[in-house]
C-alpha cells in the first residue's frame, strides 16, 4: 500500500530525513519509535504533504500512485490520514461543519453523492461513540477549548469518520491518562481491518499493549536504523535506545 524509497527531506536547508525506506502492506500495523528529534513527525508530515518540508530525494508510492506529486487534499482523499501530534484549533468552525465538508469532499473524490443531513448525523453519532467523545464537543469549534485528551480522541473520531486506507497516528498516545489511553487505543484497534493499514508513532510500549504491531521500526537521525517485531518495543522500553544507537554507530 505504501512504499517509501530512500526519502530525504530538508527544512530551512537542514537535512532531517536522510534516506528512509519503509514498506507497509494492506492489513499491517507498523510502529515507529525513536528518541525525540529523530524525525518521526517530520516523516509523517512529509507523507501528508506539509509544504514546510522540502523533499530532496526519494520516491513514495501510495496505492500505486506517486504520493509526492499529489496535493495535500488529494492525498487525504486518496485515503491517507494523519493523526496530528498537536491538533490545530479552528475558531468559529464547528466540528460538525468541518466534518461534513471533509466527508463530502472525500465522497466527491470517490464519485459518491454527499451524505444527507440525517445520514451525516447518524454517522457522527456512531463514530463519536467509538472514542466516547462527548456529543457536546461535536457542536463546538474544532479543537477550541478541548483538553489534551479530548483533542486526541477527536483525532481518532475524525479517522473513524473518514475511514482512511492508511492512518498515520503521530503520538496519539502521549499526554493521555490511563483511561483516555485505553479509549483511544481501543478505538484505533476497532478501526483496524484487513483492508486498511495503520502506522503508529509512539514513545511508549503501553499503546502497543492494545495495538499489536507487525513491525517495530526505530528511527534515528532521519533513518530507520532497526526493524524488529513487537518484542522490540518491550526491549526499548526496558533498555532505552542507547544499545541500538551504539550498535548502529
Amino acid at each position: 500500500m505504501l512504499e517509501v524509497k530512500n526519502l530525504h527531506c530538508t527544512v530551512e536547508g537542514k537535512e532531517i530525513l536522510r534516506g528512509i525506506n519503509l514498506s507497509v502492506r494492506t492489513g499491517e500495523v507498523h510502529a515507529i519509535m525513536g528518541p525525540n528529534g529523530s524525525g518521526k513527525s517530520t516523516f509523517a508530515s512529509v507523507l501528508a504533504g506539509n509544504q514546510k518540508y522540502e523533499v530532496t530525494e526519494g520516491e513514495v508510492s501510495f496505492d500505486g500512485m506517486d504520493l509526492l506529486g499529489m496535493s495535500i487534499e488529494d492525498r487525504a482523499r486518496a485515503g491517507l490520514f494523519l493523526g496530528f501530534q498537536y491538533p490545530v484549533e479552528i475558531p468559529g468552525v464547528s466540528m460538525a461543519n468541518f466534518m461534513k465538508l471533509a466527508v463530502n469532499e472525500q465522497r466527491k473524490y470517490r464519485g459518491l453523492e454527499p451524505l444527507s443531513a440525517g445520514d451525516f448525523l447518524r454517522l457522527m453519532r456512531e463514530k463519536s461513540a467509538i472514542v466516547e467523545l462527548d456529543s457536546k464537543l461535536t457542536s463546538r469549534a474544532v479543537n477550541e477549548g478541548f483538553s489534551g485528551g479530548e483533542k486526541k480522541k477527536n483525532e481518532i473520531f475524525q479517522m473513524a469518520m473518514l475511514d482512511p486506507k492508511l492512518a498515520i497516528l503521530d503520538e496519539t498516545d502521549s499526554g493521555l491518562d490511563i483511561d483516555a489511553l485505553r479509549i483511544v487505543a481501543t478505538g484505533v484497534t476497532k478501526l483496524h481491518r484487513p483492508d486498511n493499514a495503520t502506522v503508529v508513532i509512539t514513545h511508549y510500549q503501553r499503546l502497543l499493549d492494545y495495538i499489536v504491531p507487525d513491525y517495530v521500526h526505530v528511527l534515528y537521525k532521519g533513518r530507520i536504523i532497526y526493524t524488529g517485531d513487537k518484542s522490540l518495543a518491550l526491549k526499548l522500553e526496558e533498555q532505552g535506545y542507547d544499545w541500538l544507537i551504539n550498535q548502529y554507530q
Partner: peptide, 29 residues
C-alpha cells in the same frame, strides 16, 4: 493561519475551501 489550512486540507478539504472556511469561522461569532 497556515497550520489550520494544512489541518483542513489533510482532512480532504481543498485549499480554497479551507481558506473560506477559516474566514467563515472568523466572522461566525
Amino acid at each position: 493561519d497556515p497550520e489550520a489550512i494544512y489541518y483542513m486540507r489533510q482532512r480532504g478539504i481543498g485549499e480554497e475551501e479551507a481558506r473560506r472556511l477559516q474566514m467563515f469561522g472568523f466572522v461566525n461569532d
